[in-house]
Write a protein that binds this DNA or RNA. Structure first.
Length: 423
DNA sequence: TCTGGGGTCCTAGGACCC
DNA sequence: TCTGGGGTCCTAGGACCC
């Protein structure tokens, strides 16, 4: 029996989250901005209709937004993360654990192969309605024999009004028709480079790609490209990962709102990012063995004033202790900081991550248990009393921490921001 | 003036070994 | 000293995704 993979995708997720707690936003254009309010990372349908593209630089679109009364929000990841969990928890009620893959903050794959074809549509309708009712988030569902085809089915489900957000794409005729109408650049796994190469070969639609010479695909490109082609032909070639994955790298970085020349400001920001990364590391019960810091000026600048560098440090024994990681990061920064540049960005990456339970105590390098315990204790306090109740002094008190005024409230994760109801 | 942040996977190529 | 092919391991960086 062919498999039936559903892709459940939240519509305009961040914009929809903003709407859940603010009904006035229904029917009006809403956009959500990236850090520093730099560019657009989510748009409601009304905003899309105004022609605002994904990733648009805000300064270019500000006049239009003002003219049409677009509601503009700074991103509120605490809210989005919590709403995401609610959606996933709702989905988890419908299928066994091994049939649910949380793919991203706003998408999940479900293996519905066990559901009889006759009841499939009805079942997915129930799922969709339940999510909307329990969380307020509208979703689209595409169902097909492979993940890549489910992605395509989802696109149509989302764009075609008559479908009510659901499209099963299971028989061959329908699949071909859908592939014919899909540009090759819109296929999952086909980015700009592959599009260029495919177009040069006369491959324009997803159907063209599925019918292209397999040997050519294999030999010119990567194994991933070949997998994509097989998936378009209805042959599953991607694994279904149901385990909540522990990260293999953890990265934290931000652009500065304005370029920075002083080393102390960069040190302070770096300490803050290391703290955040270390928190995530401990949350997934891991240690890391290597830390890397990078520093760069703006990419949008003439070469003469451009500088970017990174420095990697192998830690003396795996750790998850914030103070130890901050020390290593500052050491790395010393290596690459050059006086005289206007820096736009600094960041840290934790690598060589291993789970705590697989940690083998080294005979010569004793793990820094005490430091790790202290850091975990801080996590506990912060979880109970709110973020940043306690933090490392070097992480400073700079304005970089203060939430943007345009940010919505943390409706679901902060008592003070709970919505009141009049009876 | 202004243009995000956080990931994964794969490949090429160098170092090294037999 | 140099011959040549084959293998592994590691890392940097590209490509892609949301």
């Amino acid at each position: 029996m062919p498999s039936q993979i559903a892709l459940v995708d939240c519509n305009n997720f961040y914009a929809s989250c903003e709407r859940v707690f603010n009904p006035k936003l229904r029917g009006v254009p809403v956009i959500v901005l990236s850090n520093n309010d730099g560019c657009v990372i989510a748009r409601s349908n009304e905003a899309k209709a105004l022609g605002i593209p994904m990733g648009a630089a805000m300064f270019e679109w500000k006049p239009l937004c003002e003219h049409y009364g677009v509601k503009v929000f700074a991103s509120n990841y605490e809210l989005y993360g919590d709403m995401s969990q609610r959606v996933m928890n709702t989905l988890a009620r419908f299928v066994p654990d091994e049939c649910l893959e949380e793919y991203s903050i706003d998408e999940a794959f479900m293996d519905l192969s066990h559901i009889p074809a006759e009841t499939l549509l009805e079942k997915t309708r129930i799922i969709r309605a339940r999510i909307l009712r329990w969380t307020g988030i509208p979703v689209s569902i595409g169902i097909a024999p492979t993940k890549t085809l489910a992605k395509i089915a989802n696109r149509f489900a989302k764009r075609t009004p008559g479908l009510n957000g659901i499209l099963p794409l299971l028989d061959e005729k329908m699949i071909s028709a859908a592939l014919r109408k899909t540009d090759v650049s819109d296929v999952w796994g086909v980015g700009r480079q592959l599009t260029k190469a495919y177009n040069a070969k006369g491959i324009r639609s997803a159907l063209d790609l599925s019918q292209a010479d397999e040997r050519w695909i294999k030999q010119r490109g990567t194994i991933t490209a070949w997998r994509t082609q097989r998936e378009l032909r209805g042959i599953p070639a991607m694994t279904f990962d149901t385990q909540p994955q522990t990260r293999k790298t953890i990265l934290c970085s931000r652009s500065f709102k304005e370029a920075v020349r002083e080393k102390t400001v960069i040190q302070e920001a770096l300490a803050l990012y290391v703290s955040k990364a270390a928190e995530r590391l401990r949350a997934q019960q891991s240690y890391c063995g290597v830390l890397s810091v990078y520093l760069s000026t703006s990419r949008f600048q003439d070469e003469e004033h451009n500088y970017a560098n990174a420095c990697q440090i192998t830690l003396h024994g795996e750790t998850s202790a914030t103070p130890k990681l901050i020390r290593a990061a500052q050491e790395a920064l010393e290596q690459i900081f050059v006086e005289g540049y206007a820096y736009k960005r600094v960041g840290v990456t934790l690598l060589e991550i291993i789970p705590r339970d697989r940690f083998q105590e080294d005979l010569f390098i004793r793990p820094t248990t005490d430091d790790d315990t202290l850091s975990s204790l801080m996590d506990g306090i912060n979880k109970r009393f709110g973020r940043n109740t306690v933090r490392i002094a070097s992480a400073g008190h700079s304005q970089m921490l203060s939430p943007s005024e345009q940010r919505s409230k943390r409706f679901t994760t902060a008592w003070n921001d709970l919505v009141g109801v009049k009876l």
